[in-house]
Design a protein around this nucleic acid. Structure first.
Length: 429
RNA sequence: GCCGCAGUAGUCUAGCCCGGUCUAGGAUGGGGGCCUGUCGAGCCCCUGACCCGGGUUCAAAUCCCGGCUGCGGCGCCA
């Protein structure tokens, strides 16, 4: 290893000890007879002092911002130093020199536009804000997994190259598969349902692709979908799972990332359990009472959601029991009320975070619902045939990771929380 | 895809309304110099830019038209 310590582990009580550090040159303050190097590694930023008397003084003249270096030195507890500690450099190696000037200011003195940031993404990802975002995302995904494991779910992997689209609606990306037409999966929907028919409780964290016209801060052509499917359960059961996931993630991020939240200048939303649930009908009534000309059957769009957010005074709320027509064919209608489906969205302010439902589990109903949407059941035979062999009632949901991250970081665009975003006009880097 | 706004050094920004004073200002970065306790180190010198094409005009960064690119809102969706 090229280091003995991370920067955050160099504390005043190590005074006099020899350490080897490695990281990037965040900045150099050159005082002539003495240079202060701000060295950054994954754990933070610390100070290295190179004195004129040190043999490495000549090497230090060559330093440029963002060069990767290795420092051997002696820890000095010194109240003049940031955090009361610094490393006096005995040996300095430039591991990889960075070209100057940088196309992007990593130290954040000059803010860059999102376009430049994405173009120069790797340097952008070295910024403290993006590092905080990545750390929070890692905790969020781990907590999602932990919560589901706790509820007895298995992590699964479904095919991403598929023969037919799952739902209609969203556009698919075609690929050539050994000379045949195939598509990138827009959702693991049908496969996760089938697997719930084998092992009951499954989840997947994986990319999904949508070739849509959408060009907004909330859409990506490639995004990470966190999918859950549960047999012998209905939409109320999975809403409880959603609640547990959200609550655990908020807890864990609050517990472990106060420093990162401070870097991002963000306060997590507080939630009440249970999370507020309004039916679609109630939502429409609220909108009407606010003077919006919305009627049953209309979609609840962004402007409408903004109103709901205000009236409900909740940052997180479920809208349940959507009109059946507005939902995909696998969504179960409500018994005795076939206009309505057993479905829900979880909305953060005005942004749809999660979408889920009870599913149809008989072949007859599925075929009827396909036909009602102008789809041909023959194209779904690979899926439908298994419903002849005891697929139990089941329910599930899908959650957009990047949208969830907006809630956890306060950042404004899913492109910012995607490491290398793919959108309508971005294929590189 | 529609509507609105915007494109000035590597990066960020002033100037644009009211054309000439712009030989385009500042910050940050980069090069050089001074400086042994900096904390966004400081000081001095230098470096580098008007998105592309057309038009109006004696004169265009500035006004007009077209294109390209980006940002915001909306639609579609997670």
């Amino acid at each position: 290893m090229l280091r003995t310590h991370f920067i955050q582990d160099v504390t005043p009580d190590l005074d006099g000890k020899e350490v080897v550090l490695a990281g990037w040159v965040h900045n150099v303050r050159d005082l002539g007879g003495k240079k202060f190097i701000l060295l950054r590694d994954k754990s933070g930023i610390g100070q290295v002092v190179v004195d004129k008397s040190s043999p490495s003084f000549e090497v230090a003249r060559e330093l440029s911002q963002e060069s990767a270096i290795q420092v051997k030195g002696t820890v000095k507890a010194d109240r003049r130093a940031p955090n009361g500690v610094e490393v006096s450099c005995n040996e300095l190696r430039i591991l990889s020199k960075a070209k100057a000037p940088l196309p992007l200011d990593v130290s954040d003195k000059v803010k860059a536009d999102i376009e430049v940031r994405l173009k120069e993404r790797l340097l952008d990802l070295r910024r403290q804000e993006m590092q905080a975002m990545i750390r929070i995302q890692s905790t969020a995904v781990r907590t999602f997994r932990d919560t589901l494991y706790k509820h007895g779910f298995y992590e699964i992997f479904t095919p991403k190259i598929i023969a037919t689209g799952t739902e209609g609606g969203a556009q698919l990306f075609p690929v050539i598969y050994f000379g045949k037409e195939a598509f990138l999966a827009q959702s693991p929907q049908l496969y996760k349902e089938l697997l719930a028919g084998a092992v009951e409780r499954v989840f997947e964290v994986a990319p999904a692709w949508r070739a849509e016209e959408s060009d907004t801060p909330y859409h990506l052509a490639e995004f990470i979908s966190m999918d859950v499917e549960m047999a012998f359960a209905d939409y109320n059961d999975v809403m409880n799972i959603v609640e547990d996931v959200i609550a655990n993630v908020l807890d864990n991020v609050a517990k472990n990332h106060q420093n990162d939240l401070a870097i991002l200048n963000h306060r997590l939303p507080s939630i009440t359990r249970p999370i507020k649930r309004v039916t679609y009908r109630e939502a429409i009534q609220i909108l009407q009472s606010q003077g919006l000309p919305t009627k049953f059957g209309d979609d609840i769009g962004t402007p409408e959601s903004r109103v709901l957010n205000k009236v409900l005074e909740q940052d997180l709320y479920f809208i349940t029991d959507w009109p059946a027509e507005a939902r995909p064919f696998y969504t179960k209608r409500k018994e005795g009320n076939p206009e309505i489906s057993e479905s829900f969205d979880l909305v953060y302010r005005w942004l749809e975070l999660v979408s889920g439902s009870s599913r149809n589990h008989t072949r007859e109903v599925l075929e009827k619902e396909l036909r009602a949407r102008g789809l041909n059941p023959i194209n779904f035979e690979f899926f439908l045939k298994w419903f002849d062999y005891g697929i139990p009632p089941h329910a599930g949901f899908g959650m957009g990771l990047q949208r969830f991250m907006l809630m956890l970081t306060g950042l404004q665009s899913v492109k910012e929380v995607s490491l290398f975003p793919r959108d309508k006009k971005r294929l590189v880097p």
